[in-house]
Design a protein around this nucleic acid. Sequence first.
DNA 1: AAATATATACGAAAGGATTCGTAATTACAA
DNA 2: TTGTAATTACGAATCCTTTCGTATATATTT
Lengths: 129, 129
Amino acid sequence: MVKPTEAELEILQVLWENGPSTVRFVNERLSMKKRVGYTTTLKIMQIMTDKNLVRRNEDGRSHIYRAVMEREETQGLLLDRFLHSTFGGSAMKLVVQALGNHKPSKDELEQIKELIKQIEGGSENGIHS
Amino acid sequence: MVKPTEAELEILQVLWENGPSTVRFVNERLSMKKRVGYTTTLKIMQIMTDKNLVRRNEDGRSHIYRAVMEREETQGLLLDRFLHSTFGGSAMKLVVQALGNHKPSKDELEQIKELIKQIEGGSENGIHS
DNA sequence: AAATATATACGAAAGGATTCGTAATTACAA
DNA sequence: TTGTAATTACGAATCCTTTCGTATATATTT
């Protein structure tokens, strides 16, 4: 898979959030966060088409773009890269940093505990498998 | 702080691992992982000096470079950026992904549990603060 | 049909990262 | 001192990302 650039990631976020969209819609969403010209967004989405990061339906006059990969799949891939480049591959160190820097709420802590239980009980095919 | 590029990060990893080093040493370390010319490494380390990512002692003939920022500090900064660009700022989602993708060992699980206890016990004053 | 609005296509400019060749400098050995 | 090896300095080439101007195509309105 090709690594999406910053700008490409922003566009993917919009597509993941809202489903298949036109260039105009994506550009409007991006414009809420930063100034960006229409043709700039268009160009990047065309490049993303070449890279096979998105596909488009060219039926109507305005094409409809959709993300090729699922959000979680892409995030997983990028996480791997980041893990390797910045934390030398140690997932633990990353998790510790993340938990340390962004104190999770009570709810979130429960969520993590739950996840840990799942992992620990993983070999016994837990109650909620 | 300036965001280190990929190549710069690789060099920082070497400096963090081994402490202050010469260009030659860094280049030899990098060469273990990928083909890279001596002057390429030199050039990047010079650029890093301009960006104030590293400082160098120019006493001897061969300069000794050292990282300006601590490893953890830099990692924290990069983590924030990554969190924002890829996970929309949700530390939880990142942690869940990381734990899901890289099943931690028993020891590591204990480590996380310990960390959670610390966080939970950390704010004795005001359960609902 | 003509004018207007909106879409895509294309290309090029600007900026940054990476790579490396070559020159200049310094140290050391013969 | 002269030559050799190793180091830093400099600049240019290449590649990628981002941005946008302009051309072209298509639809819509009057």
